[in-house]
């Protein structure tokens, strides 16, 4: 494989994603973990751009980095701001969890190695076209109208439920 600028940038994004994901799992400070998660989410957004999913890359930045991460930071503020929390990890749990995860990784890699549908994704000659129109057609014009509406109602219900759970207790 020749080493072009594209592969260089791909490996850059891949390294950034994996390294910051490892940081999320390993660092002790929760706020640092949240910021490492932000780097991971940006890395995944960059990989979406590589896969020519421009709409999803923008959505990833807006929804994950702008919404979900801010929500998680609020959760950090409201729970662990007052007291320093040192949560001890047992050695048995570490070994068992690591073993299960490694077995899972082996399983996934075996499946990937045995699935014969590979072709080169970035250099197959297709034009870089916006995907927004195609996604809009699929959602509103074709077979995915019902799931789209169900998801929007689900989101509404979930947000109302979250507000209900986290409000102050009202005694009657």
């Amino acid at each position: 494989m020749e080493f072009t600028l594209k592969t260089f940038i791909f490996y850059g994004f891949a390294l950034m994603t994996i390294a910051s994901a490892l940081a999320v799992v390993t660092v002790r400070n929760i706020v640092h973990a949240a910021f490492a998660l932000m780097v991971t989410l940006f890395g995944v957004a960059g990989l979406y751009v590589f896969l020519q999913a421009d709409f999803l890359a923008a959505t990833q930045v807006i929804v994950y980095v702008g919404g979900i991460l801010v929500l998680i930071l609020f959760g950090v503020m409201m729970t662990s701001g007052r007291l320093e929390m040192r949560i001890h990890i047992e050695r048995g749990q570490l070994l068992l969890g690591g073993g299960i995860s490694l077995a899972l990784l082996m399983l996934l890699l075996t499946v990937i190695a045995n699935t014969p549908i590979w072709k080169n994704l970035t250099d197959d000659g297709t034009q870089l076209a916006p995907t927004t129109e195609r996604i809009g057609q699929l959602i509103l014009n074709e077979k995915f109208l019902l799931p789209f509406e169900v998801v929007s109602v689900l989101l509404l219900v979930a947000l109302i439920g979250a507000a209900l759970i986290s409000r102050k207790e009202v005694r009657d």
């Binding site: 990989l47 969890g97 690591g98 299960i100 899972l104 990784l105 990937i112 080169n120």
Partner: peptide
């Protein structure tokens, strides 16, 4: 970049997430 690079990256990311859920 062939597809399997992305899938291997995805598998690594997923495994890191599983480790976090099981250990932390």
């Amino acid at each position: 970049m062939a597809l399997q690079y992305y899938l291997i990256l995805s598998a690594l990311l997923f495994t890191i997430g599983v480790i976090g859920v099981l250990v932390r």
